[in-house]
Write a protein that binds this DNA or RNA. Sequence first.
DNA 1: TTAAGTGCAAATATTTTGCTGTCAC
DNA 2: GTGACAGCAAAATATTTGCACTTAA
Lengths: 148, 148
Amino acid sequence: MPLPQTEIPGRLQTQLAERGIRMTDQRRAILSVIETAKKHLDASQILRKAQRIDASVDRSTVYRTLELLKRHGMIDELDLMHMKGEGHYYERKLGRDHIHMACLCCGKISEFVSEIFESLKHQLEQDCHFHILVSRLEVGGYCSACRR
Amino acid sequence: MPLPQTEIPGRLQTQLAERGIRMTDQRRAILSVIETAKKHLDASQILRKAQRIDASVDRSTVYRTLELLKRHGMIDELDLMHMKGEGHYYERKLGRDHIHMACLCCGKISEFVSEIFESLKHQLEQDCHFHILVSRLEVGGYCSACRR
DNA sequence: TTAAGTGCAAATATTTTGCTGTCAC
DNA sequence: GTGACAGCAAAATATTTGCACTTAA
């Protein structure tokens, strides 16, 4: 299956360069891990994978880089209903926001894109005069395979 | 989405009793803090307030009670975009879900009830055959007072 | 009576920070 | 050359757990 990447926002490394942000071997390793991730990763998993590319990567550099990417709106931070532990998960921010559904039975995470979600955010901006920079909709429950 | 069993869900203490769950002085203190809260409280704030009612309340009892209430769907756990620290906030689950908006500038938390949000959850349940037990929509951005 | 609940202390988990040395630009 | 970034170690924050004692039902 091809990557579900339609908008082609260039590589993270390029995006950072465009903003005049310094590139290091450690950042390159971390960015590449995030870019090629097949599933949602937490900070420890990102660290472990990044160290396989550059063994010198330190845990604090991972956190500092995640903070940088968040600040620039290049990644989203997820909780995934805190199904295992209190940590966070990260995913690259691509074209359109999506909803995360966490099955409390089997642990599967599904994603869902909805035009209604877009309308809702629009309504919120209009009615509340609120300028949305980041949004996160997560639901927990039972997926089609687990519900009875 | 099943309608809530009662529009006016008695006191938390009563709800627990109805489920045959044992009541203690410590739980009573914690429940009363949650019930009378005027704003979103985190675990430490709940502890501090509960101790003013019953000085013997321990931090671990607070966490254990929050876990109990979550499990029974009597409270919701919020992140409020983690604006200060990584902790969680709690609020009693009443009739209708609402959206939490966190202003990244002034820190104000606003709530918003939307029929579109209800439609969105309904669409999600239909289209994904997903049975929603808990949902959380949080947005971060600039409130009407802070946007320029 | 007795299973559930509690405080206490210690352990875990997650993230942040101070410092000093290094490196990208 | 210099300011941004790094590793390291330690601190800070947040939550969980084991255990022996207590208590609600």
